[in-house]
Amino acid sequence: MKAKLAAHRPLRPYARWIPLAFLAPHLLVFCCFNIFPILTGIFASLTKWTLGEMPQWVGLANYANLLTNPESIYYWQLRWGLLNTVKFVVFCVPFRILVPLAFALVLSSKCRGHKVLQACYYLPSLLSLSVVMVSWLYMFDSNAGIVNTLLGLGKFRWTTTEPYNWIALIFITVWWGCGGNLIIYQSAIAGVSQEILEATSVDGANAFQRCIHITLPSIKFPLQYTIITSVIAEFGIWGQPDMFNGGGPTLEVVNGVNHQSNKMLMQYIAESGFGSSGVNAGVASSMALILGLIIFAVSMLQFRAMRRGND
C-alpha cells in the first residue's frame, strides 16, 4: 500500500530535469565533438573557404560542381575516388571477416600453441599505421624486398603493377586489422553452447557441419556487427594507399586529371581540405559529406537486410 502511495506521489517540479542533469555531461561532449563538427561540415560544404579567410557562402555550387561539371578536376576526383573506395570495400571486407573468423575457429579448437598463435594474430592490431606501412614497404620493395626474394619474383613492382598493388594493399589491411574482429569472434565462439555441440557430435555431425549449422548461426549477431563496422571503417581508407604508393599508377587521363589506380576518396578530401597550398575546404567538405551519406545509406541497407534476416 505504501509502495503504491509512493508511486503516485506527485513529482517535484525540478524532478523532470534530474535525468537531464545526469545526461548533461555526455550530451555536452556529444554536441561539442559530434553535432557541432557535423553542422560545421555541412556549413563549410556550402561555402568557398581557404581556412585562412572567412568562408564565402556559395550555396549548392560545390555540389553542382562535384556532381555535374566534367570540366572540373573535383568532379573526376569524386568519381574516381569513390570508385576506388567502393572497389576496396568490396574486395577487402570479405577478407576482414573471413580471415579472423577462420583464425578464431582454429583457435577455438584449443590446438597446441593456440595462445602463442592468438598473440601473433592480434599483435599487428597494436601497431601504428606508419609502422605497419613502413615495414611492409620494405618487404614489398622491388629491389631488396623479402616478398620478391621468397617468391623468386626478381624486381617485381608491387606498388605500381595492377592488380597486384590492390592485392598487396588488401593483404596489409587484413593483416593489420585482423586482431579486432578476431577477439570478437573468439569471445562469441566461446559462448556457443557446448551441450548442443556435443549433442550434434553424438548425432554424427562432423566438425564442418557443426561449424556451419551450430557455431556460425550462434555468432550471427557479432558477425553482423563486425560486417557493419568493417564496411564503415574501410570506406574511410586513406593511410594505407597514401603511404604504400601515394595513390598508385595512372590508369587514364581525362580533362587534365589523372585517374590513379589506388587513390581513395579520403585522399582527395585530405588533399583539398588541408595541405600547403590550394586549400579548398568547401569542396573537401562537400566530398566528405557525400561520402558520409553513402556510408550512412550502405549501413542502413545492411541494418535492414539483417533485421529482415533475423525476423
Binding site: K48, P249, T250, L251, G256, V257, N258, S277, G278, V283
Partner: peptide, 26 residues
C-alpha cells in the same frame, strides 16, 4: 608518370596546367 610512360608528356603538361589552375581559381 610521364617518364614511366603512363601518361604522355602532352597529357602531363595539360594535367599540370589544369589542376594548378583550378586550385588557383579556388
Amino acid at each position: 608518370e610521364a617518364v614511366y610512360g603512363r601518361m604522355t608528356p602532352e597529357e602531363y603538361a595539360d594535367a599540370w596546367q589544369t589542376q594548378a589552375q583550378e586550385r588557383i581559381n579556388a
